[in-house]
């Protein structure tokens, strides 16, 4: 099975295999280009020798022979280099945790914790909303109380006003006044009876 080296890709920003492939293709291209350069230089030099019996075809065969040999060794050596680099350099050991993943070490049972926290938070939010409603209701009652208190105080003031009127017109104590008036009217009735009797 192929190790995708995803964790290494997270750190480096590229997969190590991609990096090695890029390097391999580049090296291979340089080898081919340089060989072509060698061949073209030789061809140019051969043009300078009119007695030269080497054909371009023969030269090409020599180039192919040398290139084949070089390519074989190149592939073997590159394969070893790739192995070493992937194991020792472009590799994150199994016991190593990258700094950005430290949180996973702190919260290993995060799935259960996440769910429990979500539930708790939901409950707290509901509680807060309820308290906010309760606060509004309490403040509304305070306003209502102001109105009711004002009305009740008005009634007491009305009683005060009534008593002030009575006092203004000379009657601060109705009980005493009525007792006095009742006694006086009884006296007057008695005097009238007396006068009527004496006149008869």
């Amino acid at each position: 099975s192929v190790n995708p080296m995803a964790y290494e890709a997270q750190f480096f920003g590229f997969t190590p295999q991609t990096c090695m492939l890029r390097v391999y293709i580049a090296f291979q291209d340089y080898l081919f280009e340089t060989m072509l350069l060698v061949e073209s230089v030789m061809l140019k030099k051969m043009d300078g020798f009119p007695d030269c019996k080497i054909s371009p075809f023969e030269l090409r065969k020599s180039t192919e022979k040398f290139l084949l040999f070089m390519k074989e060794h190149f592939d073997k050596l590159f394969s070893k280099m790739e192995e070493v680099l992937l194991q020792l350099v472009l590799n994150i050991p199994k016991n190593v945790l990258l700094p950005e993943d430290k949180v996973h070490e702190q919260y290993p049972d995060s799935k259960e914790q996440f769910q429990a926290l979500q539930d708790e938070i939901h409950q707290l939010q509901e509680q807060y909303r309820a308290e906010a409603s309760a606060g509004q209701a309490l403040r509304a009652e305070l306003e209502e109380q102001k109105v009711v208190q004002a009305e009740l105080e008005k009634i007491l003031q009305w009683f005060d006003g009534l008593e002030n009127i009575c006092r203004k017109y000379g009657t601060s104590n109705f009980k005493e006044s009525f007792t006095f008036l009742t006694q006086n009217s009884k006296k007057l009735q008695d005097m009238l009876k007396d006068v009527e009797k004496k006149s008869k």
Partner: peptide, 20 residues
């Protein structure tokens, strides 16, 4: 050490827990 599980919904939990 911990490694990504390959299930983002699970892995994101650890990252989100501190904020929660």
């Amino acid at each position: 050490a911990w490694r990504p599980s390959g299930i983002p919904e699970e892995d994101i939990c650890s990252t989100v827990v501190p904020y929660l």
